[in-house]
């Protein structure tokens, strides 16, 4: 089975800051990681490969620095990696991104299964997975929490809902977006890290994927971001953590202090 996993490099959520001047995400000195949902998509791809055989190909669209997450993916069990990178892609919204990714997926081979995280933690649109499926002319299921079986090109899976889950069947080839509940991603392995060190990632430019330049990047994006701003601060908030007993103690202490002074 030919499995393609789409991964995105995002700023580490623990470390997100807005530039107060420009109100855009400040990437200076912020650690970049694989989008957490995509880590689960990658893990599912590797597990399905281990169970049913085949190969896992990871594809990322991003700047040259995104090589780092592809290397990490190889060290965690991916077989091949493509970096889709070109200045022409800059400023792409989800429409332009899905176009670009669809061209790249076609270039990388004919997938039986495409896996994506349900959304990226920076943009939070959850549009790229479904958009990519439409462009690849595949059925798709979002928010998958479990792949039960794959038999005769039919995949049986569980889709997470607010009040439980649906059991669905979908014909392959198909695209799935996954939620965190689907698995626990593995750590890299020493053999995987050695392979990743020696592995040559294939870079694909706009020309390599035969893209129509009018559909790429900012120019190919109907979405225009007018401004980004943090929500207005409404009062002070304190997060109380720990066990229920600890939280109750802490809350009682805060209430007592606010009533009678610390």
């Amino acid at each position: 089975m030919n499995i393609v996993v789409c991964i995105k490099q995002v700023p580490d959520a623990k470390d997100v800051r807005l530039d107060p001047e420009t109100n855009t995400l400040s990437r200076e000195g912020v650690k970049s990681v694989i989008n957490p949902y995509d880590r689960h998509a990658l893990e599912e791809g590797v597990r399905l490969k281990e169970e049913y055989g085949g190969t896992v190909t990871v594809i990322s669209m991003g700047p040259p620095q995104a090589q780092a997450i592809l290397t990490e993916a190889i060290s965690c069990g991916a077989d091949e990696a493509f970096l889709v990178s070109d200045r022409a892609f800059a400023g792409a919204d989800t429409l332009a991104t899905t176009y670009t990714l669809a061209q790249a997926v076609a270039k990388a081979g004919k997938p039986d299964l495409v896996l994506c995280g349900k959304q990226a933690t920076d943009g939070d649109t959850a549009q790229v997975g479904p958009g990519l499926a439409v462009r690849l002319d595949m059925p798709f299921v979002t928010c998958v929490k479990k792949v039960r079986t794959i038999a005769k090109d039919v995949l049986t899976l569980e889709r997470m809902m607010d009040d439980g889950y649906d059991v669905l069947e979908v014909d392959l080839p198909a695209l799935l977006t996954v939620v965190k509940e689907i698995n626990t991603p593995r750590f890299p392995s020493l053999r995987g890290m050695r392979r990743a060190r020696d592995y040559q990632i294939t870079s694909l430019t706009a020309e390599d994927i035969g893209a129509d330049s009018s559909r790429l990047g900012l120019g190919g994006s109907p979405t225009q971001v007018v401004s980004v701003f943090p929500p207005e601060k409404k009062g002070d908030r304190t997060m109380i953590e720990g066990s229920v007993a600890e939280q109750v103690d802490k809350l009682a202490e805060i209430l007592f202090d606010s009533a009678f002074g610390a």
Partner: peptide
């Protein structure tokens, strides 16, 4: 986990 990550090798 250590085993999967090849530490026993």
């Amino acid at each position: 986990t250590m085993a999967k990550s090849d530490f026993f090798a």
